[in-house]
Design a protein around this nucleic acid. Structure first.
Length: 352
DNA sequence: GAGCCGTGGTT
DNA sequence: TAACCAAGGCT
């Protein structure tokens, strides 16, 4: 039964494998770039970023020689920006410690920043043919349905058992194709909602299909509700330039640029919050002048409604008290500065 | 080890 | 519309 799963999947994959720019390659750098980009990110989103990245940074040496600003510019819009910062660190480590050649074992790969258990197994199997099974969201869903895995798949205990099951199912010598086959199946057939069981290559051995209970798997541990916060941002204009601040390199949107501002406190108006935040952040007195726009955005753990206001500094020179850097930038040049989605929207609207 | 970390697609 | 979730890792 367990060997049959792999055989069915490999036969299906030989015909139905999706086409991707990194598929068929065994260059560890190319596989690494694709796997980091694919973390929590769908294939179709990754493809244009991958192509642009490989053109800009074709080798690990080229990436190691880049600076963080360039790297974040190439990453802008992909999210989870620590991935980009960690890639730069890892590229430099590969050049310094491994003479620019990626290590082939998952143990050594995992020592590089940004490479965890999944990514180490993916790179070692796809680039080097190692007998390592992967476990990601797709594999969890497929295994949970095929084997009616009744424990929560997103808890340490559930994951521990699924890693063992994944390893048992791995057809030795076929790890590269097999791993990609399970993930393709999860992405195209065994989807989270309304899976296409009629066309599934493993429906003959799938227990939840047999019992028509696909909707009950995988069992997920409930996630806490996401809070909503109100935020204000200040647009200071001076001689055709606007003031932007670079966020600290750690934490949310680390290293990206933004219009200064912050959260409203209880009972505070946007204008009051703007004055307070600018005093705390830039060390100057400022006043909101005119509302520019309202922006909404959903992050993973909270939702934001942001009001952007034109504002004026009433005295003093802005200092980077909380930001890592401040800069007056021509509106036409805002595109050169990596930003998160909301601040990019503000920038684009300012250029209209 | 539980919470943090983005954005876009899908339903 | 709002919720879900995606080729996860870090602290």
């Amino acid at each position: 039964m367990k060997a049959e799963f792999g055989r069915l999947l490999l036969s299906w994959y030989a015909i139905h494998a999706r086409s991707m720019p990194w598929r068929g390659k065994t260059d560890a750098y190319a596989i690494w770039v694709s796997e980091i980009m694919l973390q929590q990110t769908q294939v179709n989103t990754v493809i244009p970023y991958y192509n642009n990245w490989m053109q800009k940074f074709p080798t690990v040496q080229a990436l190691a020689a880049a600076d963080e600003h360039e790297v974040l510019n190439a990453w802008e819009g992909l999210g989870y920006y620590s991935r980009a910062r960690n890639m730069l660190k890892a590229a430099r480590q590969v050049c310094d410690k491994y003479q620019g050649v990626f290590p082939s074992s998952s143990e050594e790969l995992r020592r590089l920043p940004g490479i965890g258990r999944y990514t180490a197994a993916a790179i070692s199997s796809i680039a080097f043919g190692a007998n390592e099974a992967v476990l990601d969201g797709n594999v969890k869903r497929v295994l949970a349905r095929v084997y009616e895995f009744s424990e929560e798949v997103n808890t340490p205990e559930g994951e521990k058992k699924l890693w063992l099951l994944a390893a048992e199912l791995l057809p030795r010598g076929e790890a590269s194709a097999y791993n990609q086959a399970v993930m393709d199946l999860g992405a195209t057939i065994c989807t989270p909602k309304s899976p296409d069981c009629a066309n599934c290559p493993v429906n003959s051995i799938c227990l939840s299909y047999k019992h028509l209970c696909q909707g009950e798997f995988p069992v997920m541990h409930e996630k806490p509700p996401v809070p909503h916060i109100d935020v204000v941002a200040a647009i200071f204009r001076q001689n055709g330039k606007v003031l932007i601040a670079r966020r600290p390199s750690k934490g949310l949107l680390g290293g990206l640029w933004e219009f200064p501002g912050g959260k409203l406190e209880e009972g505070e108006s946007h204008a009051e919050a703007l004055t307070r935040e600018i005093r705390e952040e830039l060390g100057v007195e400022a006043a909101a002048v005119e509302k520019f726009g309202v922006y909404r955005h959903a992050y993973t753990h909270f939702r934001v409604t942001l009001q952007a206001w034109f504002a004026e500094i009433e005295g003093g020179q802005p200092t980077a008290l909380e930001a890592s850097e401040l800069r007056w930038v021509k509106i036409e040049a805002l595109g050169d500065y990596p930003m998160g989605k909301i601040d990019r929207s503000i920038s684009n609207d300012l250029q209209k």
